[in-house]
């Protein structure tokens, strides 16, 4: 039981991150768009943190060796299974031998593919998330065989004109100008009045951005003091001004310690927005507070909980159980 990678594009197997990593000097890493990754796993009937595929920017194709159930989330794209056009953000049946193709990722940058029962990947400190510095993780190449754990017979749609699922999830929106919410960083005072430039400037995402951090061009706040800063832990989302050319916004691959003052910190919700920002996209920052940011994060989690309970109701009716070899029920007419 496996997925055979036909066209890898730029893809890895990951999860929500290596949360025990930072204390050992390793970045947390993991899916950059956490909401989309969680949603894909929930839609596939998995735990939020199950290993899944993260596909960045480039077209991707794979073939399933058995019948499987998948869900594709993240940036808008053109999804086909065995040549049939399929919807993102809902469970999709794939038959043995069929090719799943993700083409023309647009609007955003990263897509997620979860497989019911998940996929196998090596684990370091409790996570399969790739770490480019240590050289750990499963990066997909042409011909890579990714082991799956469960086969799911195709779901039959009894009423041809109706969508199979009405899951009611608000899909994230993708714009070429994104608003990113931040809270004041612990060192905001070191920037004096120039800190306000962060909120009055439209920044442009540089092509040198990656999972470690996004580099943004635009008017730069300037540090007013020159005292040497001792290395210290910096949070994911920290905004720094390390050079005279660009603003640096650290993302999940960030080195755990650094010696630059932290001007502001991107909220957990807005880190998902940045995960989808393409080079050339515009970014505007808006100031918020920690309690508001926490409330928004929790609202998103509640939405995912609702989705999870819907899936928990629908899947058994469709015969998608947690046991391998579970026999599907007859079409659930009248229920």
């Amino acid at each position: 039981m496996s997925l055979i990678i036909q066209q890898p594009g730029n893809s890895v197997v990951t999860d929500l991150g290596r949360f025990r990593g930072p204390r050992f000097g390793l970045p947390v890493n993991g899916a950059l768009d956490q909401f989309s990754a969680r949603a894909a796993n929930i839609l596939a009937g998995n735990n939020d943190n199950a290993p899944l595929l993260e596909i960045t920017a480039l077209d991707f194709r794979m073939r399933a060796t058995t019948d499987i159930l998948i869900a594709v989330t993240g940036a808008p794209l053109h999804l086909t299974v065995g040549g049939r056009e399929c919807q993102q953000w809902e469970p999709v049946s794939v038959r043995a031998g069929e090719t799943v193709a993700l083409r023309r990722i647009n609007g955003g940058l990263r897509a997620y593919v979860a497989v019911h029962g998940s996929v196998e990947a090596p684990v370091l400190l409790g996570s399969c998330a790739p770490d480019t510095v240590v050289g750990f993780g499963l990066r997909l190449a042409e011909g890579t065989e990714v082991k799956t754990t469960r086969s799911v017979p195709p779901i039959r749609q009894p009423y041809f004109d109706l969508p199979l699922f009405r899951l009611g999830l608000t899909r994230p929106e993708f714009h070429s100008t994104a608003v990113v919410e931040v809270t004041d960083g612990p060192d905001v005072d070191e920037f004096g009045d120039t800190a306000d430039l962060l909120y009055s400037t439209e920044y442009t995402v540089s092509g040198r951005s990656n999972h470690i951090g996004l580099r943004l061009g635009g008017a730069l706040p300037e540090r007013q003091s020159t005292t040497e800063v001792l290395s210290r832990g910096v949070p994911v989302g920290a905004i720094e001004v390390p050079s005279r050319e660009e603003l640096l916004v650290l993302h999940r691959g960030r080195g755990v310690t650094a010696g630059y003052p932290v001007l502001a910190v991107v909220t957990s919700r807005s880190l998902d927005v940045l995960a989808q920002a393409r080079p050339g996209h515009k970014i505007r920052f808006r100031k918020t507070t920690v309690p508001e940011a926490t409330a928004k994060h929790r609202a998103a989690l509640r939405e995912l909980e609702t989705l999870r309970s819907t899936i928990a109701t629908v899947f058994p009716l469709l015969g998608i159980g947690n046991q391998p070899g579970h026999t599907p029920l007859a079409p659930a007419a009248g229920t």
Binding site: V265, S268, V290, H297
Partner: peptide, 10 residues
């Protein structure tokens, strides 16, 4: 103790 975003403290 300083706020450092919604997921960390310094």
């Amino acid at each position: 103790v300083f706020e450092s975003g919604d997921a960390a403290l310094r």
